[in-house]
Structure formats: structure tokens, C-alpha cells
Design a protein around this nucleic acid. Structure first.
Length: 433
RNA sequence: GGAGGGGUCGCAUAGCGGACUAGUGCGGUCGUCUUGAAAACGACUGUAUCGCAAGAUACCGUGGGUUCGAAUCCCACCCCCUCCGCCA
């Protein structure tokens, strides 16, 4: 008999099938707004066939059990092949069901702007005025090269395109940035400022694995697009594209206590991305590379707190950017540009004067229960278990450093280190040698 | 990488083809007794799926297989522990 014929159906769900049954039109509409091809009718058809067959199979199993208890070998034998056949049919239906339901993305929250692609993202606020320069400015690549901070030429010889050596003071600056962020995120008192009337529980710092099993990455709903991931065939492992990938499954198959929530983590890791499909985009410099370091937030909350949690996280991101005195804008990502698991995605874009543009440096993803369903991460309340909500967000990756180079450059070619970072560096300026 | 030992209901353990509808202890919840508490005693105490419900089914690391019948037998894999080798 196939022990697994029914097993796991519940945990493979991404969106709640009950919700889809009750709101097929809404699911169709919202999926379309997110540019996802879904077939809700086919899903519901398979769903109802599946449910009927479950009853048939259960009945046969009951009879089989009865025959076995009575040592009725004749009856048992007679039931065996029929049961097997129905179980196989059910298994096939379950697979079809999984395939169909996993195509359905998370539903965007009601305040997400409807739009087809990134041109329709909606800036919601700006902070800081772009500085006026009275000299000809350089971009971060030229600055980085002339100051001996960035070397892509050697990197391309050694590792290929889209790699870089980060060197000298820029390395120290990266570590300073990390300290600035970690000091804030692990301090209960400092977090109070952003959490009025909410919760100022500090983040637990984590150094997570950078490799992950395919199945777990799939449970995070981050396996696709596979072309974007580095895969180690010999060991059947993927390299993570973000610390989120291994922070999110920290409570895989667990039931959490209500009083332990929110659970907040801040993980530091290298992120690996193949950048498939971005040929020709940002080819110069190290703005878009195959490998970069990132400090990442992952938090687990009660369902009703997840929205507040995202706002709390964005407030932290903004505060840190303000400390660096980098002009930025906050952008509400529209339906057509959001990730599949997102219900609400908010980006921060830093000002890059040489490009005369705001460019994405941070993202904040509210995933509601979409990932938790597959990860089977729950919270127990009043004797009942329900899925937790999850948020993930960038704290700092390499890009803000590049923005500092451009924004803080001086006429003599030097870079002024932001005050907030100076307590972590032993220099206030990066000067030409 | 080699050699052994293990993965069972929150924890600890028993079970090694049919009465397993998985036993026992601990923990937890409720109750009895008590001025109160402890102790003692009693009951309850996993998850998921299908069903309006009654109820049924599935789950003993994972996936296959044998059998009328699998926690129990066979095969493959994963993980943990001990020892050896290698190594930051």
C-alpha cells in the first residue's frame, strides 16, 4: 500500500484551498494583477474529484482493516487490487492538485497599487534632498577604482563577469555598517523609538547556512526561478540567494508559543545569484553581482501583527538610512512587480547622483501565512493551532556603500565617511593614495 | 571517508508480523479531597485530511517494496551519537 497517498496534502498548500473555493473570482483577478498564469477552474475541478475519491479510498481502507482483523484472506485479497488502483488514482490527482495550487501566488493586500510592472510602482515618501555638486561628479565605479576600493578587472580574470574585489577602507566601511545596524537591532531600548504601542523585542543575530536542501527552498516558495539559483549537483544543495532562505525555515514543522512571538532574527550571510535574465543590466561595477554580503531580517508574528511588523521594519530601515544621511525614497511595489509569496512589498531606493536616479537598496516583504503554510510553522492559541505570519527584509547589502561613495564624494576625489559610521572606523575620510 | 549504535504521541522509554484503537513514566489541563497549598486519587491530554454531523482515514526519520494484514520483515536514502582517519 502507498502510505503516502494522502499524506502531506495539507502541507503543500500555499494559498488556503478553502479560501480559493469560496473566492474563485477574487483569486483569478488578484493572480492576474500579479502577472501569474493560474487555472482556478481546473484547480477546483481537481479539488472536488479529489475529495470524492478520498471518501472512496477511506471506505475501502475501512473494509480492508475489517478483513484483516477477521483474518479473512479471501475478502482481503479481493479488496487489495481495487484499493491499490484507487490509491494510485488519488495519488495522481493529488499531484495535479499540488501543481495547480502552487501556481497561485499570495494575494496582494488591499493597499497595494495595481500595476503591470516596475514602471507603476508608487513612491510614497522621500527623505533628504539630493546634494548639489559644484564640480564634475564621478560614479561609484570610477571612485572605487581610483581609490583602490573596487577591482572588477582582476575579479573577472579570476572568477568571471559580475564579480568584484572589495578592498581597503570600503571593507572596513562595510563592517562599520554592519555594526551600526546590529547595535540598533539588538538593543531593546533603541528599538523602543520605532515600536510605540507595539513591541520592542530585539532581534537575535544569526549566522545561517548558505546552502539549503531543494525541498526546504521549495517550502520557502523560493525555488523558482531555478535558473536564478546556483546548484551543487553532487550534494543536491542550492546556494542561498538571501539569508532569508535559511532563516525562514528555522521553525520548520514547529508549533510556537503565543507568548514567544514575535520571534525576530537578523542574519548575516553571503548571497548567491546567477542573475539569469538580467543580461546587459548594470554590467559595470558591482551594483549587480553574483555574490554579495547581506544583513537580513526575518520575523515571525501573530497574524494580526504582521502588518504592524512590516511598518516597524521599514521604520528601522529608514532610520538607518537617515543615520547614513543618504537621500532615499520609499516605494510601494505594485501588483505586477511583486514576488509570488508577497502580500505587500515595500522597497527603499537610495539616491545615486551619478545615475541621477533612485536605485533599489532595500526590500521588505510581508508574506502573511504563504510561506508558513508550506513550512508548517504554527502558533498555538487557546488550544488551537494557526499559521504564523512571516516578514523578511533587507537591513544592509553592499549597495548603500556604493551610494555613500557617490553622495559623499569631494572635489579632491576623497570620500567623507558618514558621522554615524565614524565611531566604527578609525578614519573620517577616504583619500586618494 | 571507515567501523559500530540509534531515530516511536511535548520529553524519556516499551513494542520487533494480527488484542497497537501504539503501552508505561514524566510533564500539562481539569476535577475530588483540603482553610490554602503539597501529596494522593480520577479523567483528559498529537497532527492532518474528508465529512453538516456522527464518524472515518492517514501519520512510529523519509521514500519504495513484501503481505489478507507492517511501528515490527526487505531495499534505498536522510539525520543523530561513539570511535578512527582527514581538516579550518
Amino acid at each position: 500500500m502507498t502510505k503516502s497517498s494522502l499524506k502531506g496534502v495539507g502541507r503543500k498548500l500555499m494559498l488556503d484551498i478553502k479560501f480559493i473555493r469560496e473566492n474563485p473570482e477574487l483569486v483569478r483577478l488578484k493572480s492576474k494583477q500579479k502577472n501569474y498564469e493560474v487555472d482556478v477552474d481546473a484547480l477546483l475541478k481537481v479539488d472536488s474529484e479529489r475529495r470524492k475519491l478520498v471518501e472512496v479510498v477511506d471506505k475501502l481502507r475501512t473494509e480492508r482493516k475489517k478483513a484483516a482483523t477477521e483474518r479473512d484472506q479471501v475478502q482481503g485479497q479481493a479488496l487489495k487490487s481495487g484499493l491499490k488502483e484507487q490509491e494510485n488514482r488519488l495519488e495522481k490527482l493529488n499531484q495535479e492538485f499540488d501543481l495547480l495550487i502552487r501556481q497561485i501566488p499570495n494575494m496582494p493586500a488591499e493597499d497595494v497599487p495595481v500595476g503591470k510592472d516596475d514602471t507603476e510602482n508608487m513612491p510614497i515618501r522621500k527623505w533628504g534632498a539630493p546634494r548639489k555638486f559644484d564640480f564634475e561628479i564621478k560614479d561609484y565605479t570610477d571612485l572605487g577604482e581610483s581609490l583602490g576600493l573596487i577591482d572588477t578587472e582582476t575579479a573577472s580574470k579570476v572568477a568571471g563577469a559580475r564579480f568584484g574585489y572589495v578592498k581597503g577602507e570600503l571593507v572596513l566601511l562595510e563592517f562599520a555598517l554592519l555594526r551600526l545596524a546590529l547595535d540598533l537591532l539588538t538593543s531593546e531600548t533603541e528599538l523602543k523609538i520605532f515600536s510605540e504601542g507595539y513591541n520592542n523585542k530585539p532581534f537575535v543575530p544569526v549566522l545561517p547556512p548558505v546552502m539549503i536542501k531543494p525541498q526546504v527552498l521549495d517550502q520557502m516558495a523560493r525555488l523558482e526561478p531555478k535558473d536564478e539559483r546556483y546548484y551543487l549537483e553532487k550534494d543536491d544543495l542550492f546556494l542561498i540567494g538571501s539569508a532569508e532562505h535559511t532563516l525562514g525555515p528555522m521553525h520548520l514543522d514547529q508549533v510556537l508559543n503565543e507568548e514567544d512571538l514575535p520571534l525576530r532574527y537578523v542574519g548575516f550571510s553571503t548571497a548567491f545569484r546567477r542573475e539569469a535574465g538580467s543580461y546587459g543590466k548594470d554590467t559595470k561595477g558591482i551594483f549587480r553581482v553574483h555574490q554579495f554580503d547581506k544583513l537580513e531580517i526575518e520575523s515571525f508574528t501573530l497574524p494580526e501583527d504582521s502588518r504592524k511588523e512590516q511598518d516597524f521594519i521599514v521604520a528601522i530601515q529608514e532610520h538607518l538610512m537617515q543615520q547614513l544621511e543618504i537621500p532615499y525614497q520609499v516605494v510601494m511595489i505594485c501588483t505586477g512587480d511583486m514576488g509570488g509569496p508577497d502580500a505587500r512589498q515595500i522597497d527603499i531606493e537610495a539616491w545615486f547622483p551619478a545615475q541621477n536616479k533612485y536605485r533599489e537598496t532595500h526590500t521588505s516583504d510581508l508574506n502573511t501565512d504563504y510561506q508558513a503554510r508550506r513550512l508548517n510553522t504554527k502558533v498555538s492559541r487557546n488550544g488551537k493551532n494557526e499559521f504564523v505570519h512571516m516578514n523578511d527584509a533587507t537591513v544592509f547589502a553592499g549597495r548603500p556603500l556604493l551610494s555613500i561613495l557617490e553622495n559623499n564624494q569631494q572635489k579632491d576625489g576623497s570620500i567623507v565617511v558618514p558621522k554615524a559610521l565614524q565611531k566604527y572606523t578609525n578614519f573620517a575620510k577616504i583619500s586618494p593614495k
